[in-house]
Simulated assay, not measured.
Amino acid sequence: MTPPLRVLVHGGGIGGLTAATALARNGHHVDVAELRDGPEALGVGIIQPSNALHVMREIGVLDACLAAGFAWEALTVCDPAGAVLARIPQPRMGEAPAANGIPRPALARVLAEAAAAAGAALRFGTTIAELAEDARGVDVTLTDGHHTRYDLVVGFDGIGSPLRRRLHGDAYRPEYTGFANWRVTLPRSPGLDGVLMSTGNLKAKALLTPISDELMYLGSVFAEAEDFRPDPQRAHEQLHERLAGFGGPIAEALAQVTDPAAVVYSRISQVAVEGPWHLGRIVLAGDAAHASTPHLAQGAAMAVEDALVLAQALDAAPDVPSALTAWEERRRPRALWVQALSRAVLKQETGTPTTEEEDALLKVGVPGAAHVLVQPY
């Protein structure tokens, strides 16, 4: 597409800022509308598998991510007592490392700086107030009063996507899986040189993930009632109760968890938009279209792949509708495969009955999935 497009990216998270950077680097005029007051991100840390790092390389921020995080090449698997069962080398995509752990706030800063440096306008504290589309463009008024006609509106606005509701109503609401993630940031254990996963017959798993030279996070997944919330005064004790059966490195890390305010609790939900991911000149991407459980550590990776492939499709196609059709045909099978396998792994690890389709997916397994996902996207 020769003329530069005017694009609104709705959502300034990992996927949205990656899209803004890729599009602006390709010469398009990009505005990012983000409801938060700044680029600061909540949460603990995030794993960037090699395919996500390949995207970071493509948009020019790989070195910054590696400098802010902790790269590794192998996954260590332990039994609940802490005895090492296996050390599994992880595959690489291109020249990127096998994986990188990084604090979410650090990644948000890297991506915000990259988007701004590429020429994208970051508009914080605002969201879409009015939107009207015709065959040639989309008129958008933001809640800060900004009004512009765009060639394309991209919804990287998360699992609760307002743009998804505009396109599909209540047809695709987030579905709670019945499980929740408990995480807490701690000083990195000496010698922890990659993800350490402890699992067994406890219907639970726990992980230690390095996210910088100084820090790691302890994470665990448990079945929780939909209305459960940790007690603000004893969240650390509730985590201790859930991980009481683990020894070794997990127990050593858990002993450091003494502050209830340090425990981050998040329910695990998913969304799969079975209908079109784009209607006219409005497109859904990342968690707005295909939010998955974290069991392959691929949620954010799928979002940044969406972002880069969208920028590539817009440059290769003769017009916006053709680009969006080509983009969705390329992205839908891969993203929904990740979602389905992630959910199957969650059910397998927690002793939940699986379907025949899930059993077939589980034959690939997590190690096999890593090799699939370093293939070109």
Rank of each mutant, 00 (worst) to 15 (best):
K203D: 14
R173S: 13
P294G: 06
G160K: 13
P187R: 10
H290S: 03
R281N: 07
V195F: 12
K203S: 10
D259P: 07
I250Q: 01
P174I: 15
S161V: 06
I211E: 13
D213T: 11
G280T: 09
D213R: 14
L243E: 09
K203R: 13
F246S: 04
D193E: 15
A261N: 09
P232R: 02
G158C: 06
T209P: 01
L296Q: 12
P230N: 02
R267K: 14
M197I: 13
L207C: 10
A180I: 00
R234Y: 10
R183E: 14
Q238W: 06
R234N: 12
M216D: 06
H290R: 02
A255T: 11
D157N: 04
E224M: 08
L218H: 12
A297N: 04
G219F: 03
A288Q: 04
S161R: 07
G178L: 00
G158H: 04
A272W: 15
T293P: 01
I268E: 02
A262T: 14
L207V: 15
G247N: 08
Y172K: 06
R242E: 07
G178M: 00
P210M: 12
L284F: 08
S269E: 15
P210T: 08
G248L: 09
I159N: 03
I159T: 11
A288K: 03
D227Y: 01
S161T: 09
F228R: 00
L196E: 15
L296S: 02
A255N: 03
L186I: 15
R281E: 10
T258R: 12
A235F: 08
F179K: 00
V195S: 07
L202T: 02
L202N: 01
D231K: 04
F156D: 10
G286S: 05
V184R: 11
P260I: 10
F179V: 02
R164S: 05
Y172N: 03
A244M: 03
T185L: 15
H278Y: 10
L279G: 06
Y265V: 04
V221W: 00
S220C: 14
H295Q: 10
I159V: 14
K205A: 02
E237Y: 01
T258H: 07
H240I: 09
P232W: 10
R267G: 11
F246V: 04
P260W: 12
L218V: 09
E252K: 05
P260H: 06
E175A: 11
F228H: 09
T293M: 03
K205C: 03
R164H: 08
V195K: 08
N201R: 08
K203P: 00
A171Y: 04
Q298F: 11
P294Y: 07
M216A: 15
F228W: 15
P294D: 07
P294L: 08
G194V: 11
W182L: 13
V184F: 12
V221C: 02
A253C: 11
D287R: 02
E252A: 12
A235T: 06
E226T: 05
S189C: 06
I250Y: 07
S189Y: 04
F222M: 03
G286I: 05
L163T: 14
A204F: 00
S212F: 14
A204C: 12
L196C: 09
L207P: 00
